[in-house]
């Protein structure tokens, strides 16, 4: 009998290597995702911005410039559309692809909290939208003769609507049974944000307004649009941003749950 044939003996459990903690792991995922953008996302970020600027140009033909609800809605809707394009549509596609190709196995065999992967990726996708949103909002304000003094509100609108839309995008990508369905869901979500976001809510038929109320990006659009008024109703702005934050919390929790489900 050789050594290798001898029966193996059971021993005390080996010590477990430490698991990664939530925040450092989240930071590592975020940093890696930002680096990915350099390689592959930049063309798509341009597309997101061009699309929104194109809509501004188109709408300028039918909407009067100056202080009126339609002009506010067009500029705010186009700017938030960049967030919907990237955080909802592209993120749904990314997670759909990762799931379909077995890429989630990489994370599932590392000792990381699921929330760090989902939140780190969602935060990165929301960050990708910052330049495009500011370019769109600045161009729109100039074209529609709106004040630029309160564009700082975008620093709240981007992360909060970003959280809501990225959570939704991640959940769609992770829950879709097939990669094509994840892509389809992301595209439909973005189309909804486009169609329901850029037109002033008061002009829409009532059933369409209900649909608009269901879409998380609408609250980001409304919060931003309100700040173009000479005397903004800050209480309503806060309420709209609060809705974004609440939807963000729910959708990111859902996405984390979807990730756990997909990775096991």
């Amino acid at each position: 009998m050789t050594l290798l044939d001898a029966p193996a003996v059971a021993t005390a459990p080996a010590p477990l290597a430490p698991a990664a903690r939530l925040l450092p792991a989240l930071a590592a995922v975020y940093r890696a995702q930002l680096a990915r953008a350099k390689v592959s996302r930049i063309p798509l970020l341009f597309v997101a911005t061009f699309q929104s600027v194109g809509i501004l140009v188109m709408m300028r033909g039918v909407v009067d410039p100056g202080d009126n609800p339609s002009a506010h809605a067009v500029v705010a809707g186009s700017a938030v559309l960049v967030v919907a394009f990237v955080a909802l549509n592209l993120l749904a596609q990314y997670f759909g692809k990762l799931r379909a190709t077995g890429g989630l196995d990489h994370y599932a065999t590392l000792p990381v909290p699921p929330a760090s992967v989902v939140l780190g990726t969602a935060a990165a996708y929301a960050s990708f939208t910052v330049p495009g949103v500011f370019v769109t909002a600045g161009t729109g304000s100039w074209m529609f003769e709106l004040p630029v003094a309160r564009l700082w509100i975008l620093l709240a609108v981007i992360p909060l609507s970003g959280a809501a839309l990225a959570g939704l995008g991640a959940a769609l990508g992770l829950l879709a049974p097939r990669q094509e369905l994840a892509t389809l869901a992301g595209q439909l979500g973005m189309s909804a944000a486009l169609l329901l976001g850029v037109l002033p809510a008061s002009r829409l038929p009532e059933p369409v307004q209900w649909l608009r109320d269901l879409l998380p990006s609408s609250y980001g659009v409304d919060a931003f649009a309100l700040t173009f008024a000479p005397h903004p109703d800050w209480a309503r702005v806060l309420i709209d941003l609060g809705v974004c934050a609440a939807v963000g919390l729910v959708s990111l929790t859902l996405a984390t749950w979807a990730y756990r489900r997909a990775a096991r």
């Binding site: 477990l16 592959s40 990762l98 989630l104 990489h106």
Partner: peptide, 19 residues
């Protein structure tokens, strides 16, 4: 616990491809 005991090289690299 498996993730804290082993290193795994799977057949896919999609999670790392763009890094």
């Amino acid at each position: 616990r498996a993730a804290r005991l082993l290193g795994y090289l799977g057949q896919e690299s999609t999670a790392l491809d763009e890094l």
